[in-house]
Structure formats: structure tokens, C-alpha cells
Amino acid sequence: MANKLMMIYVLLILIFGLIKKVDLIQAFMIGVKDGFKLVMSIFPTMLAFMLFMKVFESSSLQACMLQYMSPLLSWLHVPECLTMMFLLRPLSGSASLSYLNELYLKYGVDHLYSMMATLIQCGTDTTMYVVSLYFNHVHITKTRYALPLGLFLDGVAMFLALIIAQYVF
């Protein structure tokens, strides 16, 4: 379904270009060149970001925070296995996705916990990553309220995910 939409979209672009008499291959290659320049500039940002993530994990601070967050969250009736999801989601989309995969394997794909984690994964995006990528790309250092507001909204989204999953699944 999504793949079909994607291909239709590409076809639409090509046909429209054809009608408007655009030199398709030239325009495509110019775009590729621009894209290469654009995305190459993200390597420093990504390295800084990944390093941060890796050190967070390997310095055992992550495990330590997890330990202290669990009682707090279980007081809010959040299952312990979802604490990790809460912590990972704003930091890294791929890390939380692989944790979601683990939950699927452990509890089964249609289990309540799996559904909660699915909604957490989909209901929000990787805030820290987006904020650092977008602002570093244009060398903006004063990001003002972008991060606090983004993280707060992540919290709201996760909270909603739990409530909804509880009642629906």
C-alpha cells in the first residue's frame, strides 16, 4: 500500500516533468548532487549525537537512571518493561525500534505491553535527533525552547499512548 503510493508519487513527478518539458535526467542529477552536498554536512552532527548516545549507554548511567525511574513509573502504573522505551524513544529511533522488536518477541506482537510500546514508538518522533540535526545543519546554536518543549510533548504522547492502549487493547 505505502510502496504503491510511493511509486505513484514518483511516476506523477516524472509525468508532470515530462508535460512541463523538463530535462528529466539532468534535473535528477542536479538534485542528486545537491542532496549529496546537503546530507554530507550531517556527518559531524550525527557523530556527536551517536557518541553521546553510546557513552550514555556504556557509562552505565542509562542503567542507573532506569533503576531510579522504574519505581516512579510503576507508581504511575507503568509496566517496568516499558521504562526502557520511555528513555530510548526521544534519543534514538533505531534503538527504541529494536527494543520494540524485543518486546514483540518476549510478549507476542498483540500483547497489551506490545501495543503500548507500538503507540509510544509511532506517536512521537526522535526529538533529540531532530532538534540537533535540524539546528546544526544551519549552524544555529541558540535553540531556545525547542528541546524542552519537544521532550515535554514526547512525555504527553507517551502518557496518551499508555492510557489509550489500556482502554482499547
Binding site: 508532470f16 512541463k20 523538463v22 528529466l24 534535473a27 535528477f28 542536479i30 538534485g31 542528486v32 546537503l38
Partner: peptide
């Protein structure tokens, strides 16, 4: 980016 550029140039 290539396809995006075609979409840009064609309007």
C-alpha cells in the same frame, strides 16, 4: 533529492 528536484523544476 533527484526526484524532488524534478518536482521543483517542473513546478
Amino acid at each position: 533529492s533527484g526526484f524532488l528536484n524534478i518536482a521543483k523544476e517542473s513546478g
